[in-house]
């Protein structure tokens, strides 16, 4: 029985749970703010790169495509924690100092943009060639075809894999606790140190599950409905 009492005391202390809640809520707010900013950067840059790649510009089209591919491959192959460590602890050696918030946004935003670019590219390349020919035949320019015909469709089919990827990256934001970003996990660790009791950590874990469980379910539903996976 003493084992159960210990678990109750150290993992689920109700008083401590209530006391920890305001600080954890602050941390959650930072997690949400940073995640939304990352999504803005990631989707924006990713779409821009995918369009740049699809435009197939004269002369520079080929080297540009190569550069975009290298960018996407390197960022997809790098662990977030390594990149964010380089940006946060390495950049000051060059006289550039990022706050933890912007170091996180820069790193994770760049990574999300690499995944988003690949997903959008897949959507653009998967479109029925007949649609492009029809649009061109009815007088639309190359760019107009891309903007009004190809992109709306490409963005729509990109929604399920992009949702998956965004959930994964938002979860990975907890890694930014290692560069002292005061997000949910960092705050939980801080409270654990103050109270010498890991209840806040357990509470943070519960908050993460409550937050992401519905999102994970939703992304599975999207995948099933739209019949694609990322």
């Amino acid at each position: 029985m003493s084992g159960l009492a210990e678990i109750g005391k150290y993992f689920f202390d109700p008083q401590l749970m209530v006391k920890a809640l305001p600080t954890l809520a602050n941390g959650l707010w930072v997690t949400v703010k940073v995640s939304v900013t990352i999504m803005g950067v990631g989707f924006g840059v990713g779409l821009f790169l995918a369009i740049l790649r699809a435009l197939d510009l004269k002369y520079i089209g080929k080297p540009l495509r190569f550069l975009i591919d290298v960018y996407a491959d390197v960022l997809r192959a790098s662990p977030y924690l390594v990149l964010v460590t380089i940006v946060y602890y390495g950049a000051p050696f060059l006289g550039v100092r990022f706050s933890p918030f912007w170091a996180t946004v820069a790193t994770f935003g760049a990574c999300l943009s690499a995944f988003a670019e690949e997903i959008f590219r897949g959507g653009i390349e998967a479109i029925d060639k007949g649609q492009i020919e029809a649009a061109r035949a009815s007088g639309l320019s190359n760019f107009q075809t891309l903007w009004y015909v190809v992109l709306p469709w490409a963005v729509m089919v990109s929604v399920p894999p992009l949702t998956n990827r965004t959930i994964a990256i938002t979860k990975a934001v907890s890694l930014a606790s290692a560069i002292t970003l005061p997000e949910l996990l960092k705050q939980a660790r801080h409270l654990q140190a103050i109270y010498a009791n890991p209840t806040p950590l357990v509470e943070a874990a519960i908050i993460y599950v409550l937050l992401f469980f519905p999102l994970v379910r939703f992304s599975l539903y999207l995948e099933k409905r739209m019949g694609s996976s990322g």
Partner: peptide
């Protein structure tokens, strides 16, 4: 488990 960030699990 899919909802729980790996680092949170590791710290637990």
């Amino acid at each position: 488990l899919r909802s729980l960030p790996i680092l949170v699990l590791l710290m637990l």
